[in-house]
Nucleic acid binder design. Structure first.
Lengths: 203, 203
DNA sequence: ATACGTGGTGGAACGTGTTCCAAATTATGC
DNA sequence: GCATAATTTGGAACACGTTCCACCACGTAT
C-alpha cells in the first residue's frame, strides 16, 4: 500500500497518482457545488474523475474522508489567501469579524458546496482525524492571524490566543451547521457571530 | 394523518399510540446505548419495539428524526431534573461549569448513546427543525438556569443572557462533537469548556 | 351486527455507500 | 526486453435507509 496518508497534499505518489487524486477532488468539488452532500455519490465521483470505483476507495476510504479532504484543501487555500494581506480593523474583534464575514460570504455564494463539506465534517469520526486536523489548524490559523492584524508576528501566539481562536472557531462551526441545515438564516448567523465575537474579544 | 407533530410529547394519539411511540423511543435508546449510531438500524428498532417497519416510519419519518427525538426526550429530562435544585457556585461561570460538568459526566457514562444522539443532531436538516428546536431550547434553558443560580427568577432573562447561553451552547456542542468523534479526550474537552466559559462569563 | 375508514402488518424492492474479486494494465528490478 | 509486483479496472454483491403495496384489525357510526 503506497497511498498511506493522502491528507498532506505534498507527499506521496507518482505524478499519475497525484493527477488522479486531483481529478477526484475536483470531481467531488463540482458535484458538491451543484448538488450538495447527496449529489456527491461515490459512483458519480468515480465516473466524473474517470477512475474505477475501487480506485476511488483506494484513495479515499469513505465518502466522508473524501469530502473532508476537499474541505481541507479549500480551507488551506482560504488561509493562504488571507495570510497574504493585512486585515483591516482597529481591534481584534473587528478584524476577526472582517475575516469571518469574508469567509461567510464565500460560503453563502456556494451553499450546496458548503452544506456538503460541513455535513461531512460534522459526521466524521476518529478515522478521519488527520483530515480533520488539517481543517482545524487552518481555521485556528485564520482566526489568530486576524486577531494579530495580519502582521507576520505569528511567533507571538500565546496559548491564550489559541484558546480564544478555538472558542471562536467552535461558535463559528455551530453557527455554520445551523445555517447549513436551514435552522437559521444568513443574517441570524451573522448577528450571532457578531455577538459571540464581541463577547469573547472585549478589547 | 393523525400523527402530525410527535415532537411535543404531550399531545396526540390514543393510548395505544402513545404506548407504541414510547416503545420505539425506548428501543432506540437501548440500541444506541449499546452500539451507537450504527447500531440504531431501523429494522432493529422496529423489531425491538415490536412494530412493523412501516409503522416505525409513520411515527418517525427518518432515522435522524428518531434519534433527535430521543435526544430531545433526554434533554428535557435533564433540564427538568436540574430545574428542581439549586445550582452550587458563587458566580455564573462556576455554576455553568458545574452544570456542564454534570451533564458531561452523564454523557461520558454512556458514550455510545451520546455518540448516536450527537451525530444525529449534527446531521439533521431543516425537516427536523421542530425536534432540533426542542433540544436547543432545553440546552439554552439549562445554561440560563445555571447562570441565575437556580433561582426561579427565570422571568429576569435578558436577551443578553440568552445570547450568552447560546454561545456557550455552541462551544459545548462543538466540544461534544470533538469528543464523540474521538478527536479529543474527555479531559481536553473539560479543559476547553472551562476556558471558554471563563472567557465568556467574566464576572 | 355490519360496513367503513384509519392505522398496523409483513415483506418486497430500490438507491447508495461499501466491499470484494478476477482480469487487465502499469511500474519496477534485473 | 522480461518477470514480477503493484495498481487499476469493471462489475457483482452486500448492508441498511427508505419507499411502497396488498392485506389485516380494530374502533365507530349507522
Amino acid at each position: 500500500m503506497s497511498i498511506a496518508n493522502p491528507s498532506t497534499s505534498d507527499d506521496l505518489g507518482s505524478s499519475a497518482q497525484r493527477e488522479r487524486r486531483k481529478r477526484i477532488l475536483d470531481a467531488t468539488y463540482e458535484l458538491a457545488k451543484s448538488g450538495g452532500f447527496d449529489a456527491v455519490q461515490m459512483r458519480a465521483v468515480a465516473e466524473h474523475a474517470d477512475v474505477a470505483l475501487g480506485t476511488l476507495y483506494r484513495y479515499f476510504p469513505s465518502k466522508i474522508h473524501l469530502l473532508v479532504s476537499a474541505l481541507g484543501r479549500q480551507f488551506d487555500d482560504a488561509a493562504k489567501r488571507l495570510h497574504e494581506r493585512e486585515i483591516p480593523g482597529d481591534n481584534q474583534a473587528d478584524r476577526v469579524l472582517y475575516v469571518l464575514k469574508r469567509m461567510a460570504r464565500g460560503m453563502q455564494g456556494d451553499p450546496k458546496l458548503t452544506e456538503a463539506l460541513t455535513r461531512a465534517f460534522m459526521f466524521a469520526d476518529s478515522s478521519v482525524a488527520n483530515e480533520i486536523h488539517v481543517v482545524g489548524m487552518a481555521m485556528t490559523s485564520i482566526v489568530t492571524h486576524a486577531m494579530h492584524g495580519g502582521e507576520p508576528a505569528e511567533d507571538a501566539l500565546t496559548d491564550e490566543d489559541v484558546a480564544i481562536a478555538r472558542v471562536i472557531g467552535d461558535v463559528w462551526l455551530s453557527a455554520l451547521v445551523a445555517w447549513v441545515t436551514g435552522r437559521s438564516t444568513a443574517a441570524e448567523t451573522a448577528a450571532h457571530m457578531e455577538k459571540a465575537v464581541h463577547l469573547i474579544l472585549r478589547d
